[in-house]
């Protein structure tokens, strides 16, 4: 009898809960449909995409050309920053890893940590002040464009952006390289190599650098993500017409209204995300190809 009452109670409660759920869903849907016509907006967005897909090439031109122009500008400075980070970070990291308790090693590590802590806009302002107040009077070359109405491409203007964007990747790569060297320097195979008469330079080139390359490869996608994340601030500060600044301009100036504007903003944002995803996938695939341990794991 009691069990029956419990069963009926449970059924009743279940029924009430289901009714409440349906009622709240219907209420929410009708509120959203009346207050903000979500369904109509979604249909309009879908119709817009369909129109865009079926549009002739001339309709896509106002989207494709600004996108390529901005993307090209951004990729130039990002690739430059990553290249600089590898060129500076790997030797510095190897040195720090070889001499962990020496003044040089500690200083390099400290500078690397500072690179990760200092906010990008502060780093950018420091670089801006340096180029305007020190480099410009000394060389007479305008590396920084303070005015916003000049848009002619000048490769010299890349330098301050590359330096600013490279700060954090350098820190990542220093840490990765130093850890890699510190891990393998006293490994048994290094002792064997040493006992066979290999000098320090040969040890580094033949045995330590492959490990460093793996760690640096793994550190590059996060470094790229940091560089991409810093693009809006850095491009804004240096008036560089890349994806970051174009996105800010389009969002703030309300150019996002209309099909072309909205699609361009979406395309600009997607280009950044796609670049990161592609780079991360590429780095992962390369690592699996280079590292025999990972390759074996995949085969298993």
């Amino acid at each position: 009898m009691r069990q029956r009452a419990v069963t009926i109670g449970r059924l009743l409660l279940g029924g009430i809960a289901r009714m409440l759920l349906i009622a709240s869903l219907v209420g929410a849907c009708s509120f959203l449909t009346i207050y903000r016509p979500v369904v109509r907006l979604m249909w309009e967005a879908l119709a817009g995409v369909l129109v865009l897909v079926g549009a002739p090439t001339t309709t896509l031109a106002p989207i494709v050309w600004p996108l390529l122009y901005a993307y090209g500008h951004s990729m130039l400075v990002i690739l430059g920053a990553l290249l600089l980070a590898v060129c500076v970070g790997v030797p510095a990291g190897v040195l720090a890893g070889l001499r962990p308790n020496h003044l040089i090693g500690s200083t390099i590590r400290l500078l690397g940590s500072a690179g990760t802590l200092v906010p990008t806009f502060m780093m950018a302002m420091a670089v801006l002040v340096f180029f305007v107040l020190v480099v410009l009077p000394a060389t007479g070359i305008r590396f920084v464009l303070l005015a916003t109405n000049e848009s002619a491409f000048d490769p010299r203007r890349m330098l301050p952006l590359v330096l600013t964007l490279a700060a954090r990747p350098v820190a990542h790569i220093i840490a990765a390289s130093a850890d890699a060297v510190a891990d393998v320097w006293h490994a048994p195979f290094m002792h064997v190599a040493r006992s066979r008469g290999l000098g320090p330079t040969a040890l580094i080139w033949r045995h330590a650098l492959p490990h460093v390359a793996l760690r640096v490869g793994a550190a590059l996608p996060p470094a790229l993500l940091f560089a991409i994340g810093s693009l809006p601030i850095v491009e804004f500060l240096f008036s560089w017409p890349g994806v970051g600044l174009e996105l800010l301009r389009h969002i703030v100036d309300g150019r996002t209204t209309g099909l072309t504007g909205t699609t361009l903003v979406a395309a600009l944002a997607t280009s950044l995300a796609a670049t990161y995803a592609a780079a991360a996938g590429l780095a992962d695939a390369l690592q699996r190809r280079i590292d025999p341990r990972l390759a074996t794991e995949v085969q298993r």
């Binding site: 601030i233 944002a269 950044l272």
Partner: peptide, 9 residues
């Protein structure tokens, strides 16, 4: 993959 600054902005 999307920079948080841009998303929030």
């Amino acid at each position: 993959a999307l920079p948080p600054l841009l998303f929030a902005f």
